[in-house]
Design a protein around this nucleic acid. Structure first.
Lengths: 249, 249
DNA sequence: CGGCCACTTGAGCGTACTCAAAACGCGTGG
DNA sequence: CCACGCGTTTTGAGTACGCTCAAGTGGCCG
């Protein structure tokens, strides 16, 4: 459990209810895993219910090179995953929120391949590796994990292509649409939301500097496509943002 | 090495011996799958031995949206996988050669998520989806597939980060080192090899224009780090290329 | 032979980066 | 309570890297 120790575990005292009911009664309910994976959700979450843990803003869930002890399901809050390049700079490669699985990349060599850091106070379900593998042995649920991984491959492939192909305006527009869609998927407004990451983190994710991200957001505001105040976003013209992606410059 | 460019396939006429022996006697032998996956290799390749497939240069192995009928193991030759972005441009996201598995991304929804196109005449082993899944049901080999997918996630994550972070010189240096390492892994020289992709395809992969790729290669040649003639590469100073990655500009 | 494509090289331009200054929010401690 | 320090954000001015456009070469094939 190595680094988990330094994470100051605060387990929820819902043990007496049994893990399953604890999860099913949870406020996040079926949001916890994407609707396309109902069976996987039903199998996995009850197992995780026993091991819940809380992270404070800035805390590290796991880091590169650590032995992987489990996979994680985000219950509440936001995390970023990042890697360090050969020249020392750190790059954000993904943002994760409730319902997302984190730490799947480590299944390759049994060692974590990214750093996962909490963007704010958050709650994470831990599925210990032994339980996870036992689950997959005895069930055909391994198909779901395969699907989850394959979809992650596709997601990152598109991200890599876009980072190398789109302009700053297109990238920032794409980012806003991505965040909007994720909120929408989870039953919230797609037009009004809060960004939990800094400009610097957005820039790192998109391959831009934080100044460029800020400038582009300001530009969108002058166009009356969005209204942005610090981290609060109000999308006024979603189609206009979408149009950015299909149109050059 | 030069005649590899022509890639005149010399097929083994070992069909009469049964698929398993055909594969084990194959000239590519255990190169066909990475050494870290011996069990998977032994399970998978004999199954594929029955279904071998030849592609001519430019032919499409599968394309986006097609129903996935199987996964593929490259036996000889080179393929690229690419996707089409919202604005219509096509981006290369990977190059594949002997020993690589292609088409795993489709495991997410059962539909191919990339276009796979032969860069030269090549030979591919087909593992029909039913056989593939039956194999995974009856064996613990599904672990290997999971590892394969997880490693693919990691590979693309790093690629995405680099495309968004590195300069043109760094990207091209990284690309040369990548290709060199892949040849080396397969038992060939790491200093002398042939590029099977055009400048345009390299540029698409790295998020650069083909002019910039060409210019950068020429620049490396003026520095006496490499010697390049058309697609023939001779690396003269590998450490210098490596240094590019750790040093800014 | 002509046509086509890949590649190289050059010149000029534009986007995004770099450097810089100032305002702002936020937590800490006097 | 305000002062202070720190990090984030915004905005500006200048720069540089890589893109765009263009011309010219060489290889391949009908």
């Amino acid at each position: 459990m190595g680094n988990l120790a330094k994470c100051e575990l605060h387990f929820l005292d819902a043990e007496h209810q049994g893990p399953q009911s604890a999860c099913l009664q949870c406020a996040f309910g079926k949001l916890c895993f994407p609707p396309v994976l109902p069976a996987f959700y039903q199998m996995l979450l009850p197992m995780a219910g026993e091991n819940r843990l809380r992270l404070k803003r800035g805390q590290c869930l796991f880091s590169v090179g650590e032995l992987q002890t489990g996979i994680f399901a985000v219950k509440a809050g936001f995390l970023k995953t990042c890697i360090t390049l050969a020249d020392g700079q750190s790059k954000v490669i993904g943002f994760h929120t409730m319902g997302d699985a984190v730490g799947m990349g480590g299944l390759g060599h049994g060692v974590h391949t990214t750093n996962a850091i909490a963007l704010n106070d958050c709650e994470v379900c831990v599925i210990p590796l032994e339980k996870f593998e036992r689950l997959l042995e005895h069930n055909s649920e391994s198909v779901y994990v395969r699907q989850l991984l394959a979809r992650e491959v596709v997601r990152i492939e598109h991200h890599a292509a876009e980072v190398g192909a789109l302009s700053a305006k297109q990238l920032v527009a794409k980012f806003l649409l991505e965040v909007s869609a994720r909120w929408h998927d989870r039953g919230y407004s797609k037009n009004k939301f809060v960004l939990f990451m800094s400009r610097k983190e957005i820039g790192s994710y998109l391959g831009l500097t934080f100044e460029t991200v800020g400038r582009t957001l300001s530009y969108f505001q002058t166009k009356d496509w969005i209204r942005i105040d610090a981290k609060n976003v109000l999308i006024l013209d979603l189609p206009a943002l979408r149009l950015q992606l299909t149109r050059p410059i």
